[in-house]
């Protein structure tokens, strides 16, 4: 069946046999966007986190049929080296990644959190950022999340 959606600002149509195929594999294998990672396949680790209509979704457990007509953003669409998203800027300033594998998922979860709560408290972070990082970069990540909030609130008023 044919399913259409927007991904990173571009309209896409795919032809897929199984409409229950997870969005993750469409993104990774059909659209060749490898920044969204496979970690567990059961929505338990968050490595596959991306945005569907601005909300953080664990794409390994999200059937592709549900993405029809929606706006998907992956790490590749969050920001670029030339024009980084505040989260990516903060991650760079604090040198957060170690192995780096889970980091796109964390950055996507953080970007979605900042949409919801622009200036999160430590408790907000604890309650909302529940992905797994085995290198345990949480200490720098928390600092980077606060920094990203700062960068977002500084840049927002100018944009609005």
């Amino acid at each position: 069946m044919k399913i259409s959606f927007n991904i990173n600002g571009e309209p896409k149509s795919i032809d897929i046999e199984d409409e229950n195929s997870p969005l993750l594999w469409v993104v990774r294998d059909m659209l060749d966007l490898k920044g969204t990672k496979f970690g567990c396949g059961k929505a338990a680790c968050g490595a596959c986190t991306l945005h569907v209509d601005g909300a953080a979704i664990r794409s390994c457990s999200y059937p592709i049929k549900m993405a029809a007509g929606k706006n998907i953003t992956t790490i590749e669409g969050l920001g670029t080296r030339e024009n980084p998203h505040p989260v990516q800027q903060a991650w760079t300033e604090h040198v957060v990644p170690q192995c780096g594998y889970c980091q796109p998922g964390f950055m996507m979860a953080t970007a979605a959190l900042l949409n919801k709560i622009p200036n999160p408290t430590d408790e907000d972070i604890d309650n909302n950022i529940v992905n797994v990082c085995r290198c345990a970069t949480y200490y720098r990540m928390r600092k980077a999340i606060h920094r990203a909030a700062e960068l977002t609130t500084v840049s927002k008023p100018q944009n609005q």
């Binding site: 490898k34 920001g79 991650w91 040198v95 780096g100 796109p104």
Partner: peptide, 26 residues
């Protein structure tokens, strides 16, 4: 700063899981 930082912040396909070869099966 880490020399692999940008690759890891912008989601570059650098891991074994990201590798592909032409005409590849799964």
């Amino acid at each position: 700063s880490r020399i692999d930082l940008a690759a890891k912040v912008y989601g570059d396909p650098i891991f074994g899981m990201d590798a592909e070869m032409p005409n590849m099966l799964h």
